[in-house]
Amino acid sequence: MRSIKGLIVFLLLSRALFSSAQSDRIKVSINLNISNNELILSDTTGQMNENTSFQIDVLKFYLSNFRFYKNDTLVFQEHNSFHLFDEAIPTTHHFIMENSENTTYNKVVFNLGIDSITNVSGALGGALDPTNGMYWTWQSGYVNFKLEGRSNKSNTRNHEVQFHLGGYASPNNSLQTITFNVKNLRDIKLVLDADNIFNNIDLTTQNHIMSPCKEAIKLSKIVAQSFSCNQ
């Protein structure tokens, strides 16, 4: 009996030692591509073609629920996984996920935006605090993706372009799932291609989305498709 207890203690101890030795860090960094330049807010101008230019003043979005799969089996899921990227705050351009075990994976999946359960969970803190300016007030719900800027194509006042994409409830759920088949990366480099977003919108007719709607879903899909990983 005593020897069994001893064995259990030994196993627990060795497991603790073993796993701490194998603790794992996965870094995610997010960069922007705007006409092959690095973006400087309100300054960098993208030139899509000789007729169309654009400039970005505000760019904020949520990436959430990072999970890692090996052959479709979930091997690691980040706890409390909500990351607010804000172009104006460089410290939000990268983050580190800690895992107690060494993760081998061949697929990473995450969301662009905030899931519906979190959207109906009341006042939340950290990245989800309403003071981050990513929460609608007139109607409950997070803004998943916010892009404000200007384009000569937009015939609004001051050529303004405002996209506040959100909506968690059917039929206007704009949450997007993004998947990359990448293997065992410890330094995940995501790039959001702003050119691709603007190339897929007709800014003469589409320059203003401020509430959950079909157009918000359509544009959210375009944004999700504009991400690339370690290319």
């Binding site: 109906v120 009341g122 929460y135 409950s140």
Partner: peptide, 8 residues
């Protein structure tokens, strides 16, 4: 019913 939770 635009607001989905008392907290917000």
């Amino acid at each position: 019913g635009a607001v989905n939770h008392l907290d917000v």
